[in-house]
Amino acid sequence: MTMIDLAIRQTLGAFTLDIAFTAEERGVTALFGRSGSGKTSVINAIAGLTRPDAGRIRIGDTVFFDSARRIDVPVEKRRIGYVFQDARLFPHMTVRSNLEFGLRRVPAAERHIAFGPVVELLGLGHLLDRRPRGLSGGEKQRVAFGRALLAQPRLLLMDEPMASLDAARKAEIMPYIERLRDEMNIPIVMVSHALDEVVRLATTMVLIGEGRVRAVGPVGTVMGRLDLSAVTGAQDAGAVLDLTVERHIPDDGLTVLAFDGGHLTVPRVERAPGASVRLHIHARDVIVALQQPVGVSVRNALAATVVEVAGSGPSSADVRLAVGGSFLIARITRAAVRELDLTPGRPVVALVKGIAFEPGSTGAAAEGRRVVDV
């Protein structure tokens, strides 16, 4: 079932927003793009904080806005939770009172999300009697998530929910957002310009540039397109792979991950065999060879086929490689493309020299992004 169906046009001063997308799965739909691309304007329209000039907004079976049918549901009747960059808690209230504020807004008969489970889900039990001024940034955001959930939302909106947090607090909050995604069965639309957040959390990626949708789909599919690097950010070019933990190698501190293109060996992942993980492999960390190498330290060598080559700079090119049913991207020099005769259909070996590990979609404990040679 299509959970989100949106097609809106809106003039905002000299800026024109013309956005259309659908997201069919429950989970996190991430609106990704550079600052000023129109992402926050989209979720403000969904929330009813601004009114589009034309179009429609439907969540599940409920139409929030339809200019042709003259439907514009008021903000207070949309039942949408909104988590901002800053927590916006009531400073004179305890954590308990802040949470109960969300709950009190909904008639008892319509409360299907209870106080206790939300407190447990977000790890707030020991904070209930404290006031916001005594909380860390990550703790404040967890309370903001709880307050939004207890308002019994049809949809949860998050506008750069980790933008104001340092790296440590961001690592603290990520697992809680994963739990919201995996356990609450509420669709989430999240605005972000941080690729690591999107890679780790998103079910669907909506790539936005200059007020337009450039691509929609699974994160790996969108990130694997060479024609979108100018929008995603050239420095972030690379592939996103979903893999399964196959086994651990305790003596070496390594884990073997399996996917449809073979195996990758990475620093130990604290997940049980069978668990899912997600890898973001940067294009700059992939080397292309014509044959299996010998006498090198790189452990990850995968049979691949050249699919596409596109220029990425004055002297560089991006090469899209099919590895089983998945894809990698390698950023190499134009001279190397010419000397190796890298044309579509050519069999090669992809050497993955560095792994940028993003914990995947199972809601396990947080780890920061780390890049290592393996």
Rank of each mutant, 00 (worst) to 15 (best):
L121N: 04
S67P: 04
I80L: 12
F84S: 12
P74F: 09
L103C: 00
R78Y: 02
A114K: 14
A109M: 02
F101N: 11
L122Q: 14
R104G: 14
G123V: 07
R111A: 04
R69H: 11
K77R: 14
R105F: 04
R104M: 13
I71P: 13
E100I: 00
V95Q: 03
L103N: 00
V118E: 02
A144I: 12
S67C: 06
R130C: 00
D66K: 11
V106K: 09
V119M: 02
V95F: 03
L99Y: 03
A68P: 04
D66Q: 12
G146W: 02
G116D: 14
I80M: 12
R142F: 08
H112E: 14
R88F: 00
P74K: 08
L128N: 01
P132W: 06
G123I: 08
G123K: 10
R131S: 01
E76N: 13
S97K: 15
R79W: 06
L99K: 05
E100C: 04
T94W: 11
G137C: 13
G146P: 01
P117W: 06
K140M: 14
F90Q: 05
Y82H: 04
V119R: 01
D129A: 15
R78F: 05
R105H: 10
L89M: 08
A144K: 09
V106Q: 09
D129E: 15
Q141M: 13
H92A: 10
L124P: 06
N98R: 12
G125E: 07
R147K: 09
K77G: 06
G134C: 02
N98T: 05
F90W: 13
D66A: 10
G125F: 06
I80Q: 09
R70C: 04
F145P: 02
L99T: 03
G137L: 15
R79S: 11
P74T: 11
A148L: 02
A148W: 02
E110L: 14
R105Q: 15
R142S: 08
G146T: 01
R70H: 14
L128G: 01
A109L: 01
